[in-house]
Design a protein around this nucleic acid. Structure first.
Length: 405
RNA sequence: GGGGAGGUACCCGAGUGGCCAAAGGGGACAGACUGUAAAUCUGUUGGCGUAGCCUUCGGAGGUUCGAAUCCUCCUCUCCCCA
C-alpha cells in the first residue's frame, strides 16, 4: 500500500526547507507502514483573500504529495483564524475580515484548491467547528499556555514592538488557535510556509500538553513575487494567480528576473530536478519559456501551455496583436464611424481611471490606435470598425462599431 | 490615573502662518534600451475637456486678509511613570 520509507522521504523532502524533527518523521512513516495506517497531514489556510497564487500554493502541492503517497490530507479552512489575522511576517495588524468576506473567500478557495488536491479524498474542516463552541474559560486556559516573552521572541513582533508599531492583544492568540487546530484534528504532520514555523511549533507544544504525540512541522520556502524582491502576495500585486488565464500566467512568468528561475522551477513546477538543471544551462529566455509552460500546464494542460507560449511570441517577438482581445462596442454615426475624445475613450473603457491618468498615458506616448501613436490629449478621433487600440505595452482592445446606433 | 511625542498623498517621510497640490525615497505607470527579461536611464504620479479652477495634511469647530502649520474639543497610536 505505501511506498518505501526512502521513496516517500525523497518526495516529501523536495522543496522543503525545514523538518522538525526529521527522525520523528521517519518514525511516523515506519509506524504508518507497519500498521497500514495513513498519517494525518494538516494544512491550514485562512481565507483572507479570494485567490490562491503560485506562492501560497506551494504548501498545498506538498499536501498533495502526501495525498498521492496514500496519507490523509486534512485541510483546515481557517474561518475563525481569518478573523484574527495571522501576524506572521507582517509589520502591521491585519485588517479584520467580515464573516461575509470570509465565506466568499472560502468558496473560491475550494474551487481553486480543486486544481491541486483531490477534493474527494481530502478531509476539509472549518475551524469555526470547534472555536465557536469555546467558552471564555476555555480561552483563558488556552492563553495560559503561552508566555509574553516567548511571543516577543518572534521577529515580527519584536520588530514591531521596537519600532513602535502597535501590536493588538488578539494577535497573540493566533498561533494558539492554529496549534489548537492540530489537537482537534489529531495531526501527525503539519505543513506551512517558513513564516509559519512559530505557529507550527506551538502546535507541537499544545499537543504534547494534551498528551498527544507532537506533530512534525514541515516548512516550505516563501516564493518571491514577480517583482523579484518581496514575498509573493496578493496585496503587493506581484503574484501569479493559479486561476488566471494561461496567457497571463505565462506572461507574468516571462517577466520574472532570471535569477529567480531556479526557485520557481523547484517550487512551482513538478519537473525533475535533473531536468531543471539541464534546462537552466541553456539560454535564459528558452529556459524561461519552459518554466512558463510548466507552470501553466500544472494548472491547465500542455495544450493551453503551448498556446500561451505561441501567443506570447506573436505579441512580443513578432509584434502582432493577440488573437483574443477584449472588444469595445461603440455606436456608429451616419458615416459609420464613431467620434470620440481620446481621453474619454480610455476612461470609459477602463484603460485609465481618471482623465488625468489618461492624459498622462497619451502625453507619454503610451497610446496608439492601429499602430499610430496619439500624443495630444485634446485629440478628437474618428474610430472605424476593427481598429485596434493599444495602451502601454500589453493592453489591447478591438473597436467594434455597431451599425444599429 | 499622571507626563511626553505623534496621526501628512498608495506606503515611508520632510514641512511649524503666505514662496504648499505639499521636499525626498519606495512603489506604480509610461518611454528608451532589451529577451515584454532583470538592471539602468528619462518622465509622470489629487480631481477637472487642464496656461485656469476645485477639493486635500486624523475628525469637528475657531483665530486670521490667509491654516498642514496657531487655539479648543473629540478620536486613534507610541513612549515614560503608576
Amino acid at each position: 500500500m505505501f511506498k518505501s520509507i526512502e521513496e516517500q522521504l525523497k518526495i516529501i523532502k523536495r522543496g522543503v526547507l525545514e523538518i522538525v524533527r526529521e527522525e520523528e518523521l521517519v518514525e511516523k512513516l515506519k509506524k504508518s507502514t507497519n500498521t497500514q495506517t495513513p498519517l494525518r497531514v494538516k494544512l491550514g489556510l485562512d481565507p483572507t483573500a479570494p485567490d490562491i497564487h503560485i506562492g501560497n500554493a506551494i504548501p498545498i502541492h506538498k499536501l498533495r504529495n502526501f495525498q498521492e503517497l496514500g496519507h490523509t490530507a486534512v485541510l483546515i479552512i481557517g474561518d475563525y483564524t481569518a478573523m484574527v489575522g495571522d501576524p506572521s511576517g507582517v509589520n502591521k495588524t491585519r485588517p479584520q475580515l467580515t464573516q461575509e468576506d470570509i465565506d466568499n473567500n472560502a468558496k473560491t478557495y475550494l474551487d481553486q484548491i480543486g486544481k491541486i488536491l483531490d477534493i474527494e479524498k481530502t478531509e476539509i474542516r472549518y475551524n469555526s467547528e470547534w472555536f465557536k463552541e469555546m467558552k471564555f474559560t476555555d480561552v483563558i486556559t488556552l492563553t495560559s499556555k503561552m508566555t509574553v516573552a516567548r511571543m516577543m521572541e518572534r521577529d515580527d513582533f519584536s520588530k514591531r514592538y521596537s519600532s513602535g508599531v502597535p501590536i493588538s492583544l488578539h494577535e497573540f492568540i493566533y498561533p494558539l488557535m492554529q496549534g489548537y487546530d492540530s489537537i482537534m484534528v489529531k495531526s501527525d504532520i503539519e505543513i506551512g510556509g517558513t513564516d509559519q514555523i512559530f505557529s507550527l511549533l506551538v502546535g507541537r507544544d499544545l499537543q504534547r500538553d494534551a498528551k498527544m504525540e507532537p506533530q512534525t512541522a514541515l516548512t516550505t520556502p516563501l516564493l518571491e513575487g514577480i517583482d523579484g524582491n518581496k514575498k509573493m502576495s496578493k496585496s503587493l500585486g506581484n503574484y501569479i494567480g493559479i486561476y488566471e488565464e494561461p496567457k497571463e500566467v505565462f506572461g507574468k512568468t516571462m517577466r520574472i528576473s532570471d535569477d529567480l528561475m531556479r526557485k520557481y522551477f523547484e517550487l512551482a513546477t513538478d519537473m525533475a530536478m535533473e531536468e531543471i538543471e539541464s534546462t537552466l544551462d541553456g539560454h535564459p529566455r528558452e529556459a524561461k519559456i519552459v518554466l512558463g509552460k510548466a507552470i501553466v500546464s500544472r494548472y491547465y494542460d500542455n495544450e493551453a501551455a503551448g498556446k500561451a507560449a505561441e501567443e506570447f511570441d506573436r505579441i512580443f517577438k513578432e509584434h502582432k496583436i493577440p488573437d483574443d482581445i477584449p472588444q469595445i462596442a461603440l455606436p456608429s454615426n451616419e458615416n459609420g464611424n464613431h467620434e470620440i475624445w481620446i481621453v474619454k475613450l480610455l476612461v470609459d473603457h477602463g484603460f485609465a481611471s481618471t482623465n488625468g491618468e489618461a492624459r498622462r498615458l497619451i502625453t507619454q506616448g503610451g497610446v496608439s490606435i492601429d499602430n499610430k501613436k496619439y500624443t495630444d490629449p485634446a485629440q478628437e478621433i474618428s474610430l472605424q470598425d476593427d481598429m485596434v487600440l493599444k495602451v502601454g505595452k500589453r493592453r489591447f482592445a478591438k473597436i467594434v462599431i455597431s451599425q444599429s446606433g
